[in-house]
């Protein structure tokens, strides 16, 4: 462990803003890249299903 207390961990030796901003951005970019395709999938599946049902109803 390279920090003695939680406040020391948060302040990162005076560079806290830079470090935490970077990690927040990193987390945001990773989550975006996972959430966006998952949402796209549910949207796409719902859309294709509706289309399929329409086609089945009107032969």
């Amino acid at each position: 462990m390279s920090f003695n207390s939680f406040t020391e961990f948060l302040s990162m030796g005076g560079h806290g803003l830079y470090v935490w901003l970077s990690y927040a951005l990193g987390l945001a970019v990773i989550l975006l890249n996972l959430v966006a395709p998952l949402m796209e999938r549910s949207r796409l599946v719902a859309q294709l299903k509706r289309r399929l049902q329409r086609e089945n109803q009107s032969p």
Binding site: M1, S2, F9, M12, G13, Y18, V19, S22, Y23, G26
Partner: peptide, 23 residues
């Protein structure tokens, strides 16, 4: 964030390397 030692020149700001280099 917790266990890597601080850099002797850059202090704790070097921890950004763990996102910068992989990305």
């Amino acid at each position: 964030l917790l266990f890597a030692p601080a850099d002797y020149q850059q202090g704790n700001s070097f921890r950004i390397i763990y996102l910068h280099v992989p990305s």
